[in-house]
């Protein structure tokens, strides 16, 4: 698997949001639990729309959740 050039804090933010489950976040964003798991693990690069939806759930900006890693 080609490693994505960015990581994310979704798992931490879920924990800080009352231990929100992947399924709960998926329901709020409109994707499956499996898709949230793949995003969290850095296996799947979400669309800009899903990234914004995730950010809105946590009340943060996209770049506060997804962090570009310098090569």
């Amino acid at each position: 698997m080609a490693k994505l050039p960015f990581n994310n804090d979704i798992k931490t933010l879920r924990f800080l949001s009352g231990e929100m489950t992947q399924g709960d976040l998926g329901d709020k964003v409109g994707v499956t639990r499996q898709t949230i798991a793949a995003i969290e693990q850095g296996k799947y690069s979400p669309s800009l729309e899903v990234a914004f939806r995730i950010a809105r759930v946590f009340g943060k900006s996209v770049d506060a959740i997804f962090h570009w890693q310098d090569e």
Partner: peptide
């Protein structure tokens, strides 16, 4: 619930 959900972008 799963049956009513359309496939998401990954699917």
């Amino acid at each position: 619930k799963d049956a009513n959900m359309k496939g998401d972008e990954r699917e």
